[in-house]
Simulated scan of single mutants.
Amino acid sequence: MRRTYQTMLLGSALDTSALLPPSPMPLGEAQFCAPADGSWCPVVYRMTGIGWLAEFGSGLIDGALKTVLILAVAIVIRLAAHRAIARVAKGVGEGRAPALLRPLRERAGHRLLGSSSTLIERRRQRAATIGSLLRSVASFVIYGTAFVLVLGEFGVNLTPIIASAGVLGVAVGFGAQNLIKDFLSGMFMMLEDQYGVGDVVDFGPASGTVETIGLRVSTVRDIEGTLWYVRNGEITRVGNYSQHFSIALVDVPVGHGADLHLATEVAARAAREALAEPPLADELLGEVQVLGVQSVNAEGLTLRVTVTTRPGHQVTVRRALSEAVATAFTEAGIPPPARPSVTVGA
């Protein structure tokens, strides 16, 4: 009986041993590191034996590992974004724009694409500029997000930083609204391809040939050689003489006694003969048209002659037309307009 009772007591002792708490960590380590917290604190404490260094090192190692992971992910995403942007920009420069960017294609006419090295180079430069801008924006957004995440991992309170950044952004926005306006206008100008380097444009206050295009300022050289710096935000309208086609227009004055039928035939024949040979013939995109009487005044009549030309070549063709028609009228004996009479007072 006594042996049976002792056996029962021994079995109870064996069963309750599993309920006892695990052996505690060393006393010094328990003061600084929470048990089973999954951090590096116990490891650092066993290596150094310094409590404060164990606490600080645990947070530092955990934050460093997470920072490395965040930066690695950010770098991979940035590389992927840059490669995708470069591929799209290369396709746009070669005339293979994706369906999403087809509304932003260049404004040049299809008859001119591929036949002019100037237009091909302009398209390539535009694609390179837009690609560079998109890569800069992607890098700023990706690295900015990674920076905020890294600060959060080190326990930095982001609320005051975000609030301060918002207030600073509003202040900068009010103070630099003209600069922001210029940059936004430049971005939309390049995306919409309103004009490019080499185009002859009219900005209103300044007109001439575009020499450089930037996100903030565009430069135009006028016919007298003056270089104008025009802020993109101040451009309210753009007249582009270099897109699709141009029209050479000549108004030829004749006297009231002229035979209009003969004058029309002479003007048409002279214009066709003047533009029949290269290099002027290479600049034409249509046939010469004599539209007839454009205006009537006290001195005489005005006949209008037009022809469609390649973009930017209308001035050369117009000068040749004016010279040829004026010479033909003189040879055919078509009277010029009468000189206005001058009355001298007594």
Rank of each mutant, 00 (worst) to 15 (best):
G114M: 05
P278D: 12
S17C: 08
A108S: 13
E299M: 00
G93T: 03
V44W: 02
R304A: 13
A13P: 01
I75G: 04
T7I: 11
L149P: 05
W40Y: 15
S115Q: 12
A84Y: 04
R237C: 00
I85R: 03
P22A: 08
D15S: 13
D37V: 11
Y241V: 01
S242W: 02
R122F: 01
V170G: 06
G109Y: 01
L69G: 09
R122D: 09
M187S: 13
G114H: 10
P337N: 06
N157S: 11
G300K: 01
G38C: 06
A97N: 07
F203E: 08
T264K: 04
A248N: 02
G239T: 10
P35Q: 15
T159S: 08
L291A: 15
N178C: 04
A263D: 03
A271N: 02
L133S: 10
W52F: 11
S341L: 12
G63N: 08
Q294W: 06
L184G: 11
A298D: 04
E94H: 02
E277W: 02
D202E: 09
G186V: 05
V293S: 08
H261P: 00
G300M: 00
T327I: 03
T330G: 02
I161M: 09
T118V: 11
R83M: 12
P336L: 00
T302S: 12
A320I: 05
G225P: 09
A171G: 12
A84R: 07
G300W: 00
E29V: 08
A138E: 10
F174R: 11
Q243I: 15
S295Y: 08
G49D: 07
R319K: 13
G300A: 04
T209H: 06
A171P: 08
F329P: 00
A263F: 03
E153W: 06
P42V: 09
L71M: 14
L53A: 11
S322P: 00
R111S: 05
D222L: 06
R96E: 14
G173I: 09
V293G: 10
L262M: 09
L179W: 13
R269Y: 05
V170K: 04
G198V: 03
G28C: 04
R105M: 08
H110C: 04
T16R: 10
A320Q: 07
L303W: 04
T219F: 03
L20H: 07
I85H: 07
V293W: 08
G173P: 04
P335M: 01
L113E: 10
T309G: 05
G114D: 14
P42W: 07
V43F: 10
G169F: 11
R304F: 05
V68S: 09
